[in-house]
Design a protein around this nucleic acid. Structure first.
Lengths: 242, 242
DNA sequence: CAAGGGCTTTGACCGAAATCAAGGCATTGG
DNA sequence: CCAATGCCTTGATTTCGGTCAAAGCCCTTG
């Protein structure tokens, strides 16, 4: 069971008072008393696609729960080559505990809404509440797992398998209409072709060609360049290389 | 500062009684009283290169500190394609807290010595000692950082850059004779060409050819197929693509 | 020493994906 | 309505790394 599933199934809805929304991110680990303290300092934001959330530019001093939308984590080489090293969906927690040396950027891939807390507030709370740190450890272990799965994709899969794996991963994360009977599903791509290329270690052209192939082979349909309909998840999975 | 450096610089030597060795892994987070309890259940092992430490076969029910040697973490696709997703050096902590779903294998790349504890003992201790969980969180964050760095290497670097990056990483981790003056260093490769290929997402032949190129360009020397001498770390770094 | 096996190197050739180059198709704004 | 802009697709060509094949080099073992 992933952390995400765990939080969902635990079903701990927490009224985060400042952002006036019920959500289930890391806040779910706090007891009501603690939460009231935290809520006073939290605030809800909505940001445009493309906004930089964590970057080299401004030293960001806050943590956030992702309430909706998709955030991409990227790293770049000095000559501009870029790689997306992670995607965060609701209710993931966004931020860098204990300043790591690694330079990472976070950018809104879609419209994103966040509930943010000052770094100091979270860090104070973490000292008091082992349960909060435990939650964080679990999310981190989960992200590590995902990162390692993608290392296999990046290092050992063909372009066709990479694209199929990507679609499968997105479907699993934001699929609104999973139909177990027909084994079909549909969703909006949260990333542009360029982002997908940066995620899979390919070029835009190769991503486009592979999507075209999946379309002509009738594995998927794409409307408005965004909305994907997968006719058979199993057929897609069989092309993802395990 | 990496976790590894942190543990080293903190300089917390702990006498782990059962293995009768001073080491500084996760045990360093425990106070002496707790340690006595743990030490009763711990034991020191030495394993041959190639031994499987964590695998699909036997469900391993213990955690370990790596005392010396190098452990490779691998993942495989159903058709046998393999990817190394991490390397662990002393004093890293080896094991899977909270059973994750991801199937991962750990195998001794070199001769390895370990200090192992039963899973139950560590887990009991973790509930009592927030400091232990904190250490674990820090190591996990560090591994996540490393994994994401390698995603950039796997997705966006050329074969030449991959091999240079690999040598640089190994040098940083097990360099016994770093000479800041001449900027030179030397070390034994802990991995075979096949392992290096699995780590970098390349074939054996490509790894061999790139090493040959570095040799003919006088950036490195290799003796006995194992012992590498880097004449200029900066020159090597300049070939690693940042 | 010779034989054998495991690992590594090297060479010739091939192919998947990158690069280079147009062109299409929406949305936006004058 | 017609540029203009930003994505996306498609085609032609090139190239980097993979594949196939052979040989070299150690190291062990009889």
């Amino acid at each position: 069971m992933t952390v995400r599933e765990d939080i969902h199934s635990a079903g701990i809805p927490v009224l985060c008072q400042s952002c006036e929304a019920r959500h289930r991110g890391v806040c779910g680990a706090l007891d009501p008393d603690q939460l009231v303290g935290l809520a006073k300092t939290s605030s809800r934001h909505s940001v445009e696609p493309g906004s930089e959330l964590i970057g080299d530019a401004e030293t960001v001093d806050s943590y956030s729960n992702v309430l909706s939308g998709v955030v991409k984590l990227t790293k770049s080489l000095s000559d501009g080559r870029q790689q997306i090293v992670g995607l965060q969906f609701a209710p993931d927690f966004l931020g860098r505990p204990f300043k790591m040396e690694s330079e990472i950027n976070a950018e809104a891939a879609t419209a994103v809404s966040l509930c943010s807390f000052p770094k100091t507030a979270i860090e104070r709370m973490m000292k008091q509440s082992p349960e909060l740190e435990h939650r964080l450890l679990k999310q981190t272990l989960n992200e590590l797992d995902e990162a390692r799965d993608w290392m296999v994709t990046l290092g050992r899969k063909t372009a066709a398998e990479k694209v199929a794996s990507f679609l499968l991963m997105i479907a699993r994360n934001i699929d609104p209409t999973l139909d177990p009977a027909t084994n079909a599903t549909s969703f909006d791509l949260p990333l542009t072709r360029a982002d997908i290329a940066d995620f899979l270690g390919l070029t835009i052209e190769t991503v486009s060609r592979q999507l075209t192939r999946l379309r002509t082979d009738a594995v998927i349909r794409i409307d408005n360049n965004r909305h994907v309909t997968v006719d058979s998840l199993t057929r897609l999975a069989s092309r993802s290389g395990a």
